[in-house]
Simulated assay, not measured.
Amino acid sequence: MTKVPPSVPGVVELPVAGAPADVRVVLARVAPLAGWAESVRDCLDDDERARAAAFRHETDRRRYVVAHCVLRHVLAARTGAAPASLRLGPPVPARGPRPKPRLEDHALRFSLSHSGDLVLVATAEREVGVDVEHLQDPVAAEQVLPVLHPAEIAAVQVLPAADRPAAVTTVWARKESLLKAMGSGLFRDPSVDEVGAGPVPGRPVAGWWILDLDLPPAPGPAREESRAALTVRVPSDPI
Rank of each mutant, 00 (worst) to 15 (best):
R188Y: 14
V130Y: 08
A141G: 14
E125G: 02
I239Q: 04
G10W: 11
P5D: 05
V168D: 12
P93G: 04
R72D: 04
P204Y: 13
L44Y: 12
V200S: 11
A151L: 15
A167F: 14
L118W: 00
P201Y: 12
A141P: 15
S39H: 12
L14V: 10
P150I: 15
A181M: 13
K3V: 02
T59P: 02
L213Q: 06
P150G: 07
P20M: 13
A53C: 12
E133H: 04
G35C: 10
S113D: 02
A122M: 01
R62C: 08
H149L: 15
D47I: 13
V119P: 00
A228G: 04
P238C: 05
P6T: 02
L75E: 12
C43M: 06
D42T: 09
A151V: 11
H73Q: 14
L44S: 12
A173I: 08
P160F: 07
L27A: 07
E224L: 12
L71R: 01
L88Y: 05
D60G: 11
L213C: 09
L230M: 07
R63S: 11
R24T: 11
V92Q: 13
S236C: 06
T123C: 03
E176K: 03
T79V: 07
G35P: 06
A77G: 15
R87A: 09
P219T: 06
F55L: 10
L159D: 08
M1S: 06
E225W: 10
A76N: 09
R126H: 01
V132R: 00
V74H: 14
G220N: 08
